[in-house]
Amino acid sequence: MKRWLWLLPGLAAGVGLGLLIGWVIAPVTYYDTIPAQLHPLYQDEYVRLVALTYDVTQDLDAAREDLAALNPDEPTGPLQTLTERLIAEDAPPDVIAPLARLAKDLGAATPVMVPYVQETP
């Protein structure tokens, strides 16, 4: 009976080895992620790309669909958040304007965005 106690150190070493392999050496890798799983910096970049693309193509449906890939429940949420943050950070107007224009066309513009969406004469 005493001999079976030797199972425990083997078990402990096996669990440790399993965790080492599973978490460090060969962790589960996600190569099929979606925009919502991007690093926050890339998510910001994604929103900027959507806005700049909309500025060129004027395809509002495509812009809405692209934003929904980031947040299906509230597609305009990340757009509003990024735009307001950039305004608060005093980012250059040419960075903010495409975002604000898209927010306006999606009916998601907030008061702070108004100066950036006014038509130029």
Partner: peptide, 25 residues
């Protein structure tokens, strides 16, 4: 014991609590 432990460890690390990739590129 080592084999059982390895199986348990991998099951935990790959299935029950896998590495989460929320900061993908």
């Amino acid at each position: 014991g080592l084999a059982l432990g390895l199986a348990l460890g991998l099951y935990y690390a790959w299935v029950i609590n896998p590495v989460q990739y929320y900061d993908s590129v």
